[in-house]
Amino acid sequence: MLKKVRTFREEALIAKEHYRTYVEGFESELLRGISTVTILQIIQQHPQTGLYGYQIIKTLESETKNLLIVEEGTIYPLLRKMEKDGVLKSEKKEIDGRIRKYYQLTAEGQKLLNHMTGFFSRLLEAMAPLMEYKITLPKDKYIYCPNCANKIKLDEITKFCDVCGLYIEDLK
C-alpha cells in the first residue's frame, strides 16, 4: 500500500501531498471490498474451528505475501459488522487464560462469499485485456451464474443459483 511507501526524491509524484492523498484514497477504496472477500475466504478455509482476529491478519499477510495488509485495528469493526449482518457467527473460547472470539461463516455468509468471489473473479477476467494480464478461471471446477456471477461448484447438487434463483442445470 502506498501509505507505507517511502519517497526517495523530491520530484517524485507522491512527494506532492495532493497526489499521495489521491492514490491513497484510491487504494483504500479498492482494498475495502477486496479485504472483505479475502477475509471471508480465509475464514472459509477453517470451517470447523474458525479463526480469531489476529490469526486472520497473520494468514492474510502470509497468503498475500504481505501485499494486502489491513490496518490491524480496522479488522475488528469489519468482523463485527459482518457478524451483525449475519455473514459471520462467532464463538468465544478460552485459550491460555485469554478469551478469543472465533469467527465462522454462516450458511448465508457462505452463499454471499460464493457470489462475491464469483463476481470478483469475473471482474478480473473481464478487465484482463485492458490491464494486459492473463487470467484463467477454473471453469473445470466451477460455473459462474450468467445472471449474477455467483460461483457454483460443478458437483453441487443444485438446479438453481443460490443467490439470484436462475435455472442453471442446463449450464452444467
Partner: peptide, 20 residues
C-alpha cells in the same frame, strides 16, 4: 447486498466440462 447491480456477462458454453 443481493440487490447490488447485476453483472452483465455473456452466456458461455460450459457443457463440455466434467464435474470434479
Amino acid at each position: 447486498i443481493e440487490e447490488e447491480p447485476k453483472v452483465k456477462i455473456l452466456s458461455e458454453s460450459s457443457t463440455n466440462v466434467k464435474p470434479v
